Computed example of a mutant assay.
Amino acid sequence: MNKHIIGAAAPLALALLLPGCGRAGDESANDSAARAEGEAGHAEDQAKGSEADEGAIALTPQQIRAAGIELVRVTAGGGGALTLPATIEGDPQGTQIVSAAIGGRVVALNRNLGEPVARGQVVAVIESREAATIRAEVEAAQARAMLARSNLQREERLFRLRVSPERDLIAARTAMTEASIALQLARQQVAAAGVGAGSLNRIGVTAPIAGRIVARPVVLGQTVAADAELFRVSDLARVAVTVPLSPADAARIRVGTPIEIGAGDRRSSARVSFVSPVLDEATRLVTAIALIDNRAGQWRVGEPVTAAIAQPGEGDGTVTVPASAIQTIENRQMVFVRTAGGFRAQPVTLGARGAGTVAVTSGLTGREEIAGQGSFILKAELGKGEAEHGH
């Protein structure tokens, strides 16, 4: 009886077991498929992340400055560049002529060409009989003022004692006022002549501004007239470049137009600050001036340079970048665009080249800030990163 029950129950248990095994197999297959799909998605995300990070270089602002990488703005408009000869000159607002208000013989020259001077520093000493006369007038005025003050004090004391009449007190006060005015006038003459910085019959000539000596047309022992130029002092932290333009070219140049100055392997970027409204009588040309930051001291007054002035484009989306910003990486032309975390290598298509500039026909919008001088450092850093990634 029991055997029959067990024999009958066995097929039923087997039937119940088989569907369970089928479900377990299906679940295992589904889990494997889900894991494979997740791994594939993770791999795809990693590939996308690698693709997004490709060409990115992380640098802080301090690292950028320490590496000497120059940041420049892309210039909208691809009309090319007008290339002309130009000359470096001192900033008109930062140049002063040092002269003496009175004539005499130069007995000391304390500074040579190229040396720095501080404002108010004595740079020359002149011996002059006129200086002695002026100094004597001051001493005489001081003596008269002291005498008038003493008389006034005596008259005030006598008037209080009712010994001296009031008219004598008034006369003493008037004499004191006149003596004070005469002394003040004599001191003003001393200050105007610069006699106060010397001794006896000598005057010390001081520098009106801080800067460097760029001209010294006198020699020791020379007799000079009043207001003769002794030195010329320039603050060379900023210099000017003057560009002669034809009237036709000047009509296309505006204040604020980008300009790049070049000489050999040196480059500086600036903007036009002045375009003359009149023609030069001798050359019949128009003078344009741009001010250049020269704190590094790379430009010298009087030096001939080449000026490339950006010309307006035709609104076709072309932009202009410095030639130093272009780097060739894997046979592609690249620029390094500034990002929040550093730089990103951006492929570009190049157009016409000017003096120190290149037109970019695609790849930039004209609103970017890019690496100019020093961009080769970013190229080397990018190559280093790719090499490490390859290993």
Rank of each mutant, 00 (worst) to 15 (best):
T87W: 01
G80V: 07
G55A: 10
A76D: 11
A86Q: 12
A56H: 11
V74W: 03
A67Y: 06
A67H: 04
A81R: 04
L59M: 15
A56R: 15
G55R: 08
R73F: 01
T87P: 02
P61T: 13
Q63C: 02
L82T: 12
L59N: 03
G55C: 03
V72T: 14
L84P: 06
E54V: 10
Q63N: 04
A67T: 02
A86P: 13
L82C: 14
I57D: 06
G78N: 07
G78M: 08
T87Q: 14
T75M: 13
V72H: 05
L71T: 11
R65C: 02
I64N: 05
L71A: 05
V74L: 01
A81M: 08
E70Q: 12
T83L: 11
G79I: 09
A76Y: 02
A67D: 12
I69P: 04
L84E: 10
Q62G: 06
L82G: 11
G80A: 06
A66K: 03
T60G: 10
R73C: 02
I88A: 08
R65S: 11
I57G: 05
I88E: 06
T87L: 15
A81P: 00
G78W: 09
A81I: 03
I57T: 10
A58F: 02
L59G: 07
Q63G: 11
L84I: 15
T87I: 12
I88R: 01
I88K: 03
A76V: 15
A66V: 05
I88S: 01
L82V: 12
G68F: 03
I64S: 03
G68H: 01
R65L: 11
G77D: 09
T75D: 14
A81S: 15
P85N: 14
P61Y: 11
L71R: 13
L84G: 06
A56N: 13
G80N: 06
G79T: 09
L82E: 10
L84Q: 14
G55T: 07
L59V: 07
L71K: 07
T83E: 12
L71S: 04
I88F: 06
E70W: 00
E70H: 00
I69S: 01
I88P: 05
L59D: 03
Q62Y: 04
Q62S: 14
G79E: 01
A58T: 15
E70P: 00
T83A: 15
L71W: 03
E70M: 01
T60P: 10
E54S: 15
A81V: 12
T75W: 09
P61R: 12
A58D: 15
A67S: 13
G68L: 00
Q63A: 15
L82F: 14
R73L: 04
A67F: 02
G68A: 05
